[in-house]
Design a protein around this nucleic acid. Structure first.
Lengths: 225, 225
DNA sequence: GAATTGGCTTTTGTCTACAGTTTACCGAGC
DNA sequence: GCTCGGTAAACTGTAGACAAAAGCCAATTC
């Protein structure tokens, strides 16, 4: 035990730079998700390295990680290419997401306490007001936070990790869609909260399943227009 | 379009050594799953490099990939440690596996053709005879092949990739158990095939769920003894 | 005698350099 | 005009070297 008398947590923890590969990884992921790097584009290590002001090594490591997570395709002796999502893959990914989120809803209904439910309601209110204000970016961010909270309440770390990756990729594929589905989405969130409060796992599963399926439907409708 | 008239796939594809990191990755994964490297052990890059006859670089890249897939924990500025599975994590992992496999069974029931069903029956027969012969290793291998085949028949690549990783980790945690569950396991496989043949997705889901849940139960019974 | 501080060792994180492979371009031959 | 062969450039894959951070042990001081 420290005897300095300093209350824990108040110390700023002085910004750790952290490993370079981490920051490069996040930077590249940001560039990919924002479409600054477009699908199919050839990523040259030395270019990225020069652009980010580091050497090739951290860039390589970041690319390898992005590869295992499905963001880039790493063709041997040829280099890294931003992954090009196909219609079929997007559909399959959404299927998996539906599965994971539905299970999370079921577990959340079984395990959530009053504190967690309150947090969900607050997020829901925040999302609804963001919709009212027309702040699209905030709507998207709050939506992600809501789903993350449900996942946290489910209490399954392994499930949360998988869902986190799947979710982020889904959001990449469906960004144009997500901006469309405004108010309806939050009505469904309210239903989900009601099911969780009622400790009705089956209904929570069903609501969440319908919720993510709506996203798929919206996507296909948009694709036709 | 090629005009050689050669049917695709018949060319031997002349063995490429492939990137070193791949082989290092597989070598390390083998060492971990066979318990040659035990959980919690500190993996020193230079040692592994010397032992495998390569430089540190490929080892680093392999370790990074093993880290993202949950096999080793990579503490910054401290090195790589073989992941130590906790009781809770093993349980959560099994929950996820149940979920993924059950969904695969449902999809397989919907999409499997006669060729696929034949393949499943052959694997089942092979597994049963291996049980009769007492060839434990072959039983384990065939079991993995059976589940992989079901996953393939489901026709969802994303799902298959996730399940592949989860399955391998589950097999790592539960290796002692897998060797115990001999004949009963293959009876349940027969039931699953029947459900798929009948195109009964709901029943296939339920059979698979019960099947993986039995594994969990066996594990806990063993833990008590 | 216990705690702390200083230096030493080990290991990681990063950079630079070199070799191998693939691709593209260009010219010669049919 | 088209195809084939050769050459050159660019990029990746691997190796080796240097610097920084963390852990450990001993010496020192209160």
């Amino acid at each position: 035990m420290l005897s300095t008398g300093l209350p824990q947590g108040t110390v700023p923890k002085l910004e750790r730079p952290g490993p370079l590969r981490e920051r490069v990884y996040e930077a590249l992921l940001e560039l990919i998700t924002t479409r600054a790097l477009r699908p199919g584009q050839h990523l040259v290590e030395s270019e990225l390295a020069g652009h980010l002001g580091v050497s090739r090594q951290p860039v390589r490591e970041a690319l390898q990680r992005l590869n295992t997570e499905g963001w880039v395709d790493l063709r041997p002796a040829q280099g890294a290419f931003v992954h090009e999502p196909t219609e079929e893959e997007a559909d399959q990914l959404l299927t998996v997401r539906t599965l994971l989120e539905a299970e999370a809803a079921r577990l959340a209904a079984a395990h959530a306490g009053t504190a967690g439910i309150t947090a969900l309601e607050e997020l829901c209110a925040k999302g609804e007001s963001a919709v009212a204000d027309g702040d699209v970016d905030l709507v998207v961010a709050t939506n992600a936070a809501f789903h993350a909270k449900v996942m946290e309440l489910a209490g399954n770390v392994v499930l949360a990790e998988l869902a986190g990756q799947v979710d982020r990729r889904v959001r990449w594929y469906y960004t144009p869609v997500a901006r469309q589905r405004g108010i309806q989405s939050w009505i469904e969130h309210r239903e989900l909260i009601a099911a969780i409060v009622a400790r009705d796992g089956a209904r929570a599963t069903e609501v969440m399943r319908a919720h993510t399926e709506h996203t798929r439907k919206t996507y296909h409708e948009r694709a036709l227009s």
